[in-house]
Simulated assay, not measured.
Amino acid sequence: MATGWAGDGAVQEQIDATVDDAIKRARSQLRQGPSLSHCEQCDAPIPEARRKAVPGVHLCVECQAIQDREQHEFSGYNRRGSKDSQLR
């Protein structure tokens, strides 16, 4: 049942598109290739266990945590999922 201007299945299409975008973004951030033995930012040694667990790792745990925090802070607002975006 459609309500307002939305067609049948519009909500599910919006959900699917948001999930697809998140998957593409996550896959684009995956490292490939050999892991480094030392962090590319602080030059600290990267333990062998981390290199085996995370293929293509280039950062130590501390630097990776900082980068993850910064990416989370600047990840932006998902307007596609906002009810306000449907009203404009």
Rank of each mutant, 00 (worst) to 15 (best):
C63Y: 03
K83F: 12
H72Y: 14
I23Y: 06
V19H: 12
S85F: 09
G9Q: 03
K83C: 07
Q64I: 08
R88P: 00
P55R: 01
A49K: 14
H72L: 06
E70F: 09
P34C: 07
L87Y: 08
H38M: 11
L59F: 15
A53T: 02
Q32W: 13
H38A: 13
R80E: 07
R88V: 07
Q67R: 15
A44T: 15
Q86E: 11
N78F: 05
D68C: 13
R50D: 03
C63D: 13
D43E: 10
Q29Y: 07
F74A: 05
I15E: 07
G56E: 01
H58A: 15
V57R: 00
I23T: 06
M1Y: 01
G56K: 03
A26T: 11
D68T: 14
I46Y: 00
Q14E: 14
R51M: 12
Q64F: 14
A22F: 12
A2F: 01
Q41W: 10
T18H: 04
G81R: 07
T3D: 01
G9D: 02
P47K: 06
A10G: 01
Q32I: 15
A2C: 00
P34W: 04
W5G: 02
V61M: 08
D43W: 08
Q86W: 09
R25S: 08
F74T: 11
R31F: 10
S75D: 09
S37F: 04
I23V: 14
E48V: 12
Q14A: 13
R50N: 00
R25M: 07
G9R: 09
A65Q: 15
D21A: 08
N78P: 05
C42S: 09
R31S: 14
K83Q: 05
P55N: 01
S85A: 15
H72N: 14
G56Y: 00
Q71R: 12
D43G: 01
A6V: 04
A65F: 09
K83H: 13
H58Y: 06
G81P: 00
D20P: 03
N78W: 02
G76P: 03
R31M: 10
A10N: 00
G4I: 00
L30K: 14
S37E: 13
A10Q: 02
A26H: 06
S35V: 07
A26E: 07
K24N: 10
D43Q: 13
R31G: 10
Q67P: 08
E48L: 13
E62W: 15
R27S: 08
H58R: 04
V11R: 15
A44C: 09
R31W: 10
E73A: 09
L30A: 09
S35Y: 02
D20A: 11
S75L: 01
S82G: 03
H72D: 14
Q67H: 14
D68W: 14
E40R: 06
G4Q: 00
Q32R: 10
S28Q: 13
L30H: 05
G7Y: 01
S85V: 09
V54C: 04
D20H: 05
Q41A: 10
D20W: 02
V61S: 11
Q14P: 00
A26V: 08
D16S: 08
E70Y: 12
H72V: 10
K24T: 10
Q29H: 14
N78C: 15
C63F: 10
A22C: 05
W5F: 01
Q41N: 08
V57D: 00
S75T: 04
K52L: 07
D20M: 05
A49I: 08
R51A: 05
